[in-house]
């Protein structure tokens, strides 16, 4: 038993590599690659056939990804040993769908962290890329909508899922992503991004694959049902009205203090100036009645 576990552990470590190594990427090259993919003639046939999809994905990969991740997704190191792009063998389709689907990859420039940006590829191309990377080695697949949807649950079960998700969220997620999912700071310029308003699929994939510096919450760690509940709780936060008026970015006491000073003290000092200001004077003399 123990041996089996060990080997499972060994296996899994090849499937993960640091995704956020600082890469020295030329923006121009990437742009060229991106533009090429956008304008290159449509691939023959539909993406339905898996073989064709993988082939299409490989071509996209060679153009847009291989510069850092290597010709066969094996990862690259620069001469001084820095990781340019991690190995993608075994990261699975979910990681590709998350990274490319949220526009994080292809990376525009190296930095402490790759931010979300408008995506470069359309859904078909992302699917092709994902299929290709998934063919490199077994890894988590793109979750199905049924994995994170509350469809078909009774109201009570739904309620239970949201409440449960809230507790899991507050235990595992708020430390970095803040109590409202507004995001937070991490060491050396890194940050935990805002996760309010992010599509459930990407949240699920992030939990599954642990993009960049985020730890992963694989199914052995956080069960699929628990992931679903977290997503349900986040959804309920978004559906919830702002009971007490407009939020100040959901960042806690810092913006609240700022508002107290700027809006509160600002307007009250303004009022004081008005109260003490001299009113208009007339040049006329008072006629004593």
């Amino acid at each position: 038993m123990r041996l089996l576990n060990r080997s499972a552990g060994r296996l899994s470590r090849h499937r993960r590599g640091p995704l956020a190594g600082l890469a020295v990427v030329l923006l121009g090259l990437l742009l060229t690659g991106g533009l090429y993919t956008v304008f290159s003639p449509a691939q023959a046939g539909s993406a339905a056939a898996s073989e064709e999809q993988i082939a299409q994905g490989r071509e996209l990969f060679l153009v847009s990804c291989s510069f850092c991740h290597g010709q066969n997704g094996e990862g690259m190191r620069s001469q001084d040993g820095n990781q340019l792009g991690p190995s993608l063998v075994g990261v699975g389709a979910a990681a590709v769908d998350f990274q490319v689907g949220t526009g994080r990859m292809p990376m525009a420039r190296p930095g402490a962290q790759v931010p979300r940006k408008p995506e470069t590829f359309d859904q078909d191309e992302i699917a092709a890329l994902a299929a290709y990377v998934a063919s490199l080695g077994p890894g988590p697949a793109i979750p199905d909508e049924s994995d994170y949807s509350l469809e078909g649950m009774s109201d009570e079960e739904r309620q239970q899922a949201i409440t449960n998700g809230g507790q899991i969220f507050l235990t595992n997620c708020t430390a970095c992503h803040n109590f409202e999912g507004s995001g937070g700071a991490m060491p050396r310029g890194g940050f935990a991004p805002k996760i309010r308003g992010v599509e459930p699929r990407y949240i699920y994939e992030a939990l599954l694959t642990g993009p960049q510096n985020m730890p992963n919450f694989t199914n052995g760690n956080l069960s699929p049902d628990e992931k679903r509940d977290v997503i349900a709780y986040l959804g309920s936060l978004e559906d919830m009205p702002d009971y007490g008026g407009f939020g100040l970015g959901g960042l806690g006491p810092v913006p609240e203090g700022l508002a107290a000073w700027v809006l509160g003290i600002g307007s009250l000092v303004g009022a004081a100036v008005w109260i003490a200001a001299h009113t208009t004077r007339s040049t006329k003399k008072k006629v004593e009645a």
Binding site: T171, A175, C176, N178, F179, G184, P253, V254, G257, L258
Partner: peptide, 13 residues
């Protein structure tokens, strides 16, 4: 809950 925490844990100004 003494085992939970949130990012942006600040006191009032």
């Amino acid at each position: 809950d003494p085992s939970k925490v949130t990012a942006g844990s600040q006191p009032d100004w």
